[in-house]
Design a protein around this nucleic acid. Sequence first.
DNA 1: CACCAGGCAAGCC
DNA 2: GGCTTGCATGGT
Length: 289
Amino acid sequence: MLAEEKNNSVVLSGVKDFDLTQTFTCGQCFRWMPANGGYTGVAFGRPLHISQDGGTVTLHNTTLSEYNSLWRGYFHLDYDYGAVKKTLSADPILEKAADFGGGIRLLAQDVWECIVSFIISANNNIPRIQKIIGALCREFGSPVEYNGQIYYTFPSAQTLARLSREDLAVIRAGFRDKYILDAANKAASGELPIDALGDMSTDEARNALMTVSGIGKKVADCILLFSLGRYEVFPIDVWVRRTMERLYIGHEAEAGEIAAFADSHFGALAGFAQQYLFYYEREQTKEKK
DNA sequence: CACCAGGCAAGCC
DNA sequence: GGCTTGCATGGT
């Protein structure tokens, strides 16, 4: 893969196992919107437009230096997804799923943004999750201008910690507003040490996350997988549970049984498997409608 | 009008 | 400990 800077853009060529639409619509993130044939979004406070033509990927509004320090890691571009898919494809079911969603990249998202996003995801649907997060950023984030338009950064824990439930009512998060505030208070005070999570073991980090009201096992697992690089983690939601019951287990199963099955079958690659299966199941369901 | 949505906490036994 | 229930809101 080659990276070149030109005209305030970085052009990547020879990119493999990478598909923007799959990556942005597989349910791991909520803030990238289709625009001008690509996607525009804000991550780590920086607005970016990204487009793709086969193995050529163009990142607009960035430099090679910023690409190397930020976007390269965010898009998980130094990781060999060919090897992941090859290993998982020993299983015929995952061979299909990994072929179908073969361009998915597990984004390395900002931990704080991921925490709040998946607190909001609880007992909710994806369009509404996007709507609530959009309102949260518009109301409480900072405006950043790009290409004549205003975008918004994700609000910091310190900013949100100053709000009351009444202040937060404008985003229409429902009962989740108190959970967002608990997370913000604990993060701002250091009781939840956001920056130290990366140095903890997966179990330690999960336990720390679950001290926040509104973060249970499933939400914690999403944070571990989508922002802390714990690729062995297998978040089990209603979709994944149904998929695993149908394709592997053969009967209704508890989360514990499914987790044990995933661990023994997918091992250190369980997180990739989960994302391939989630995307596969959801897209199949859409087509039937 | 029911029922559901990338679950969770609180209240029971 | 495990099991049940209520939860804000918006969409079908």
